[in-house]
Amino acid sequence: RHRTTFSPVQLEQLESAFGRNQYPDIWARESLARDTGLSEARIQVWFQNRRAKQRK
């Protein structure tokens, strides 16, 4: 699998969602996937990585 590159618009949507809830449930992730055009799995990994980045 190649590395996913996120567009500025996608990142804005993801960061906005992260600001509201750092642990989105499956319904929120699937909604974000539809809105961004990404797969739910990529959304899930993005949130995992974003939480790890915040802990540093």
Rank of each mutant, 00 (worst) to 15 (best):
K53E: 15
S31T: 10
D35C: 06
P8V: 11
E15D: 03
G37M: 06
F18Q: 03
V9A: 14
T5P: 06
S16A: 13
Q48T: 11
R29K: 05
E15M: 03
S39P: 09
T36C: 07
E12K: 10
Y23N: 06
R42C: 13
P24R: 02
R29N: 03
R20C: 13
D35Y: 08
E40K: 09
Q10T: 06
E12Y: 03
Q13I: 07
T36Y: 02
Q10F: 00
R42V: 15
R50T: 04
K56Q: 15
Y23S: 08
Q22R: 07
R55I: 15
P24M: 12
L11P: 00
P24F: 04
G19M: 14
W46L: 01
R42K: 11
K56R: 09
I43F: 02
N49D: 10
W46Y: 03
R3M: 08
T4A: 09
E12V: 10
Y23A: 05
N49Q: 13
R3I: 12
Q13Y: 14
A33C: 08
G19T: 10
T36H: 01
R29T: 13
A41V: 11
P24S: 10
R55M: 13
R42M: 12
V45A: 15
W46H: 01
R42L: 13
Q22S: 09
D25I: 00
S7Y: 15
R20F: 04
R3C: 14
R29Q: 11
H2L: 08
V45R: 12
Q44K: 13
L38H: 03
V45N: 11
V45S: 11
R20D: 07
L38R: 02
Y23T: 10
R34L: 12
D35H: 14
I43G: 01
H2C: 07
Q22C: 09
L14Q: 00
R50C: 05
R55V: 10
A41Y: 08
Q48P: 01
T5E: 10
T4P: 05
R1V: 09
T4N: 10
T36E: 00
I43W: 01
A28I: 04
P8C: 04
D25R: 10
H2R: 07
S16G: 09
L11A: 07
F6P: 13
R50G: 00
K56W: 05
R29P: 00
R51T: 02
T4C: 13
R51A: 02
I26T: 08
Y23E: 12
R42D: 15
Q48K: 15
D25H: 06
T36I: 08
K56N: 14
Y23P: 03
T4V: 09
F6G: 04
S39N: 14
I26A: 15
G19Q: 09
R20T: 09
R34D: 07
A52P: 02
Q44E: 11
E30A: 13
Q54N: 13
R20G: 06
S31R: 13
F18I: 00
E40W: 03
D25C: 02
F6L: 11
S16K: 15
S7E: 04
L14G: 00
V9S: 14
E40S: 10
Q10A: 08
E30R: 12
L32K: 00
Q22T: 07
G19L: 08
V45L: 14
L38E: 03
W27V: 15
A41W: 10
S16P: 00
T4G: 11
R50M: 06
S31K: 15
S7Q: 03
I43K: 00
L32Q: 00
I43Y: 00
Q22H: 11
E15C: 03
K53D: 15
R29D: 02
A33I: 03
P8H: 11
Q48I: 11
E40D: 12
R55H: 08
T36S: 03
S16F: 08
N49P: 00
L11T: 09
F18Y: 13
D25E: 03
A41T: 09
S16L: 13
L11W: 06
S31F: 07
Q44G: 12
F18L: 01
E15R: 05
K56M: 12
S7H: 04
H2K: 14
A28Q: 09
Q13P: 01
R20H: 06
A52N: 04
L32E: 03
V9F: 12
A28N: 03
F18A: 00
Y23I: 11
A33R: 05
Q54D: 11
R55D: 09
R51Q: 05
R34Q: 07
T4K: 08
S39K: 07
W46S: 02
R29A: 05
T4M: 13
K56D: 15
F47W: 06
T4H: 13
R3H: 15
R29H: 01
R51P: 00
H2T: 12
Q48G: 07
A52M: 12
I43V: 10
A28P: 05
T5Q: 10
F47C: 02
I43A: 00
D25S: 11
S39M: 02
T36N: 01
N21D: 10
F18H: 00
A52G: 12
E40F: 07
F6C: 06
R1N: 14
S39I: 04
I43T: 02
I26Y: 12
R50Y: 00
E15N: 02
R29M: 12
Y23M: 06
K53T: 12
D35N: 08
T36G: 00
R1S: 09
L14P: 04
R29S: 03
L14K: 00
Q22A: 10
R34T: 08
L11F: 03
R55L: 14
T5A: 05
N21E: 06
W46T: 01
A33Q: 03
Q48F: 05
R34G: 05
E30W: 12
S16E: 13
T36D: 00
T5I: 11
Q13G: 04
F6Y: 06
K53P: 07
W46D: 01
Q10R: 04
T5D: 12
R3S: 15
A28V: 13
E12L: 11
T36W: 04
R20K: 13
Q10I: 14
A28S: 10
R55P: 14
K53A: 12
Q54L: 13
E40L: 12
K56L: 08
R55N: 07
S7V: 03
V45F: 05
R51F: 07
P8S: 13
N21P: 01
E40V: 11
E30F: 08
N49C: 09
W27N: 14
F6M: 07
R51K: 00
F6K: 05
N21L: 02
K53W: 06
R1A: 15
H2G: 07
S31E: 08
K56T: 07
R20I: 09
P8F: 06
W27A: 15
V9T: 12
Q44H: 06
H2Y: 08
F47L: 04
K53R: 11
Y23F: 05
Y23L: 04
E30K: 14
D25M: 03
T4L: 12
Q44A: 13
E15L: 05
Q48C: 13
R34W: 06
F47D: 00
R3E: 15
I26W: 15
R1G: 12
K56A: 13
T36K: 01
R29V: 12
D25P: 15
Q13M: 13
N21V: 06
L14F: 02
N21H: 03
H2F: 13
Q10S: 04
V45Y: 03
E12H: 03
F6R: 02
F47V: 02
S7A: 06
E12Q: 15
I43M: 01
A17L: 04
S39E: 10
Q10P: 03
Q44F: 11
D35I: 14
Q22N: 08
Q54G: 12
S16C: 11
E12I: 09
R42Q: 13
L38T: 10
Q13T: 14
K56I: 10
N49W: 12
L14E: 01
P8Y: 07
E15S: 04
K53S: 10
S7P: 01
V45E: 13
F18P: 01
K56F: 05
Q13C: 15
